[in-house]
């Protein structure tokens, strides 16, 4: 009798293949269900533009309109992190897919990055549309020289945001409904605190400092400083960018620890198991 040697692929290979494979259904969904164009694009756009109109009505300073437009664009990414990444595990548990992730040799990190990457195209398109349309409609002007550094800050912010998303996703491994409530609860205050619609320094040092835990706060503020002339300075853009850069490994490491820990807790309490009843 021959004892077949089982092939065990390297963790890196599995990681990369997982990212591509998990991104795949997201990409296909965007191709096959065209309705997303409407739901994903039209609704958030209306929201952001409505906010601009309110500001205009209040005769807010001109650069505030720019804040709103940029905030609306960034919001698209934040919502994606909250609902399409963190909360996805809750859906996956419901139909048994989570079980299959767990028993396979892949990692949650690969699965989550795949999800993120898979929806990157549609989210970027949505954010871009808000930015473009908002800017044209309200005649917002940007500092051209700030573009490149702002793109750099944007990429840093995005990385930090998705690492935070992984941390949140770990909660969904263990908690069901409770994690939904948390995500829900985090949505509005964070939209507010992170200064999506106004400069952070309006919050004062303490609240602003606390809000800075969400990478979007600092990143957005830095981008505004770089792109919109006359932005009030909370912390200089360079420092903010540095802080966001530091958040990336911090959130990544925390997410890794939390994913491991929550997995073991969930195995102990039977939370990974889907029951068919």
């Amino acid at each position: 009798m021959s004892t077949a040697q089982h092939v065990q692929h390297s963790p890196l290979r599995i990681f990369l293949k997982t990212i591509a494979a998990r991104a795949y259904p997201r990409v296909m969904a965007a191709n096959r269900q065209k309705t997303w164009v409407f739901f994903d694009m039209a609704f958030p756009m209306v929201g952001a533009l409505a906010m601009v109109l309110v500001y205009q009505g209040l005769h807010a300073p001109r650069q505030y309109l720019g804040f709103v437009v940029m905030g609306g664009a960034m919001l698209a990414f934040w919502q994606n992190v909250l609902w399409s990444m963190a909360a996805q595990f809750s859906w996956d548990r419901g139909n048994g897919t989570l079980e299959l992730y767990v028993i396979s040799p892949t990692t949650f990190e690969g699965v989550l990055l795949g999800m993120a990457l898979g929806s990157m195209f549609t989210v970027t398109l949505r954010a871009g549309a808000i930015l473009l349309l908002g800017s044209l409609l309200f005649g917002i002007t940007y500092t051209a020289a700030g573009t490149l550094p702002a793109i750099g800050v944007f990429l840093l912010t995005l990385a930090a945001l998705y690492c935070l998303g992984m941390l949140l996703a770990s909660l969904f491994l263990f908690y069901g409904r409770e994690a939904w409530h948390l995500s829900n609860a985090m949505q509005e205050p964070i939209n507010f605190l992170s200064g999506l619609y106004f400069p952070v320094n309006a919050l004062g040092a303490y609240v602003g400092g606390a809000a800075s835990l969400v990478p979007m706060t600092l990143g957005l503020d830095a981008m505004r400083q770089l792109l919109l002339p006359g932005t009030p300075v909370f912390i200089p853009a360079g420092t903010e960018a540095l802080l966001v850069a530091v958040q990336i490994p911090v959130f990544a490491v925390l997410a890794g620890i939390s994913l491991r820990y929550m997995e073991i807790r969930a195995r102990r309490d039977g939370k990974l198991v889907t029951r068919w009843e």
């Binding site: 390297s10 494979a21 795949y24 259904p25 296909m28 969904a29 048994g96 028993i103 040799p105 892949t106």
Partner: peptide
Amino acid sequence: MVSGGEQAGYGILKVREQLWMFSQFYGM
């Protein structure tokens, strides 16, 4: 592991695509 009546995966995919997706989690 395969369970009878399970609904795992993503309905938007085709049979072949879904199976391919799961194979990748094993590094195939």
